[in-house]
Amino acid sequence: MNNSKNLVEMKNIHMCFGKVVALKNVDFKVGENEIVGLIGDNGAGKSTLIKILSGVFPPTSGEMYIRGKKISNRGYSVRKAHEYEIETVYQEKALGEKQSLWRNIFIGRQISNFFGFINVKKEKEETERIMKELIGFRGVGVSADSRVGKLSGGERQGIAIGRAMYFNANLIILDEPTAALSTKEVTKVLNFIRKIKESGRSCIYITHHISDTYSVSDRFVFIDRGEIIGEYRKNEISMEELTEKLLMVSARDSGKGDN
């Protein structure tokens, strides 16, 4: 077993949205310098789990530890998660549509003075830099001042990922970041994850593309209808077996649905 310390640990997490039970009894952890591939069917509860971890909403019940320190569910927030260096690329609604790119990069973590006034010039410069160096926008008509609403789906995901790269967190959570990306751009994201690994940091990578997650992850966590149903280290399972497992889960689901 891996004895290195856990970066984050979630214990016995339950999450209900009204009558919908999205997570039951979930134990989930991410080790230091570990890439975790979170795998599951649509509606399995992946996004719900990582939103709890990144402070969007508290779990209905359960405990959370960051670097061994217990986190109070009530006092936790996105801002706190940022302080703990947890950075998230959300699956949807990750950007303010009517706002400019530079505002979207820095919202919540503005470069501002003592009185809270934003250094607009600096933020725009940094945004241009992020676009060129981190995202590699060739920038046809797209600048720091462009509004998100006019970007393509891939460009949007590029911005969200660029933001995560820029803030250089210790744990980077990527929730289906490649859905709208071309093959070439997917490669960039996978290289980014490898860079995370090389620099000693951790990542949770959610995707429906098994080959992608297999190529970068150290460990795979299966989640199905709100429950963790399996965990495998990379050396315990081949990509074919992993694919088979996922297909089996889907089959089990549709089988039940038919009854």
Partner: peptide, 12 residues
């Protein structure tokens, strides 16, 4: 713009 997004970006 979008309350959900604002919350996810760390706006109180």
């Amino acid at each position: 713009d979008n309350r959900e997004t604002a919350r996810m970006m760390g706006v109180n």
